[in-house]
Structure formats: C-alpha cells, structure tokens
Amino acid sequence: MTTALAATEIVSQLSAQFPGAVEEAGTDAVLVKGEHLPAVVEYLKTAAGLKFDYLNFITAVDYYSYFEVVYRLTSLEFNRYIVLKTRCYTRNKPSVLTLTGIYQGADWQEREIYDLMGISFKGHKNLKRIFLWEGFDGHPLRKDWNR
C-alpha cells in the first residue's frame, strides 16, 4: 500500500531545512510557498530516506480567490507519497516556478496547465499552448471563462 507521508513528520524536517517555506500543513498535503517550491522538491527528491523520485502528476485548481497548483510525488523505493501544494493569489498573470529542471515529466503537464488554466511557469523553456491553438481566447478551465 502506498502510504501517505504524515504531514507532521515531514513538516518539521522541511521547516528546519527551509525556514518559512511551509505555509500550512494539512492532514494529507503540505502547502509550500511559491518561491521555495523547487528547492523543497529538490530536497524531497534527493534527501536520503525520502527519495521522492517519481512525479505522479501536476494539476491546478481555480478557487476564484487563488489558484492552487497540486503536485503529487511518490517514492518508488519506500512506497510513500506526498502531496505538495502551492498557491498564487493573483488572477492576472499568475506564475509559479517550474519543475522541469528536476523532473522531465513536468514539461508537458506544466504546458497543459498554462494552456488551460493560464498559470505560467517561470523558467520553463518552451512554454506555449499545448492543446489549443495560438490565438485561442482565454483559458477554458478557469471558472470565470466564458465562451
């Protein structure tokens, strides 16, 4: 059974490593500040005993007042997973730091989020629309998008 890494367990470790990086720790997810995200993920990926080397998926949710980007990482070795979240509080050109340097698999999923949700990923080398065509009006998965 892939078990969740208890948030409390990891939060103390993360706070020691990156003071101020963890915004909030829920029961099953850790909310990380946007600017610390790549460093935290890098740490989770490489630190001994954690080794979250497998990125399951990235997605984004529009909560009107903020966008939430959700990452789920799995450690194949220890069979554990962790859910990381980060938020951006602006609707006008929200942006998050990219993870493409850490996981190659993040590339197209970030492009997908950029295309459908309109969140840009800073540092992504080829950030352009993936499903819809250039010139499509708006980002359809946003809650206020209207045809």
């Binding site: 080397d53 497998y54 399951n56 996981y103 190659q104 698999g105």
Partner: peptide, 21 residues
C-alpha cells in the same frame, strides 16, 4: 529516465522498474 519522466505501466516495467499499482 523512465522514473524521471514519470513513465508507468508496461513501458516502465520493460525498463526494469518493478512497479505495479
């Protein structure tokens, strides 16, 4: 590379990742 890209299923198993949900 397969792990880094998040590849799963028979493709990953053919590369030696013994991972099956």
């Amino acid at each position: 590379l397969a792990i880094n890209c998040g590849i799963s299923g028979p493709v990953a198993r053919a590369s030696g990742i013994k991972h099956d949900l």
